[in-house]
């Protein structure tokens, strides 16, 4: 294997050019102010970070973390049983079910979110059915729950797949042994299955939490722009205010949050068994 090391060079080159360099740029921008083209105007400063620790922006951060956590927990509650059901099936059925889970992801994420808009809209498909049944139409779209729904819908596969990949690798003889020794189903799950699947849960947790924290499209399309999340704040700084320094600082803060989240969760994942997708 050692001789094949050079095979990774193209990727390393790619990574440096498109991941490392941009990250360094974001970092530089976050710690400076002024115009990069004018000498003397471009200066080191921590003003951008100080600006962020204002109750106003902290409130935005709090709301984002809150929504991201909620959607991650819902994904876990929905995804875990799903992963278990799939992993119990025979291999043929299993592959079909996993395929069904993955196929919607082949379609563009934006398109799927737009589809929800036509489903939930005031004159949308759901309200059309409700009216047909003789009830008064409801307000589905442009609120917290619509944003939550969009997040859960889009990120659920990222929770199911890592848990599933840990579950199918699990040594079934352990479960049989526990059952032989008289443990009931609940006990087997709590003492054997769940602890062993923890690495998958952890990696699922991070993989849902990260995009949920940084999303700005879902909150704009399904939240009707009324919900400023941290992703929207960054977008606003780059696209509408033209303040790349502050925008970069917020991005760095958000990255710090994700890193802290990952550090905490990786404590549970000592064996690094989490079926990674990324």
């Amino acid at each position: 294997m050692k001789q094949l090391k050079w095979l990774s060079y193209p990727y390393i080159f790619w990574m440096i050019l498109f991941i490392i360099v941009p990250l360094i740029l974001v970092f530089i921008f976050s710690f400076t102010t002024g115009d990069i083209r004018l000498n003397g105007d471009f200066q080191f400063s921590i003003e951008n970070f100080q600006r962020f620790f204002d109750p106003l922006y902290l409130k935005v951060l709090g709301k984002s973390v809150n929504l991201a956590l909620k959607s991650t927990i819902i994904c876990l509650l929905l995804g875990y049983p799903m992963a278990m059901i799939i992993s119990r099936e025979n291999i043929k059925k299993r592959n079909v079910m996993i395929l069904l889970f993955v196929v919607p992801m082949w379609m563009n994420f934006l398109l799927r979110t737009y589809a929800w808009m036509t489903l939930l809209g005031k004159n949308g498909v759901l309200n059309f059915l409700i009216k047909k049944l003789g009830f008064t139409p409801l307000n589905f779209i442009y609120n917290d729950n619509a944003v939550l729904l969009g997040m859960v819908y889009n990120f659920l596969p990222f929770m199911v797949l890592p848990i599933y990949s840990v579950l199918i690798k699990m040594d079934r003889s352990l479960i049989e042994a526990a059952e032989d020794l008289g443990a009931n189903k609940v006990k087997v799950f709590l003492k054997i299955i769940f602890p062993l699947s923890l690495p998958g849960v952890v990696s699922g947790f991070t993989m849902v939490f990260m995009p949920a924290l940084s999303t700005f499209v879902i909150s704009r399309l399904l939240g009707g722009g009324q919900y400023m999340l941290i992703g929207n704040l960054i977008e606003q700084q780059f696209l509408w205010t033209g303040d790349w320094h502050f925008g970069s600082a917020i991005s760095i803060i958000m990255m710090a949050f994700i890193l802290i989240g990952m550090a905490i969760t990786s404590k549970f994942d000592k064996e690094k068994e989490g079926g990674g997708l990324w």
Partner: peptide
């Protein structure tokens, strides 16, 4: 002053 507008807008949406 654009920054002030941006701040106000964030306050409204937050």
């Amino acid at each position: 002053f654009t920054k002030e507008y941006s701040r106000i807008w964030t306050e409204i949406l937050a």
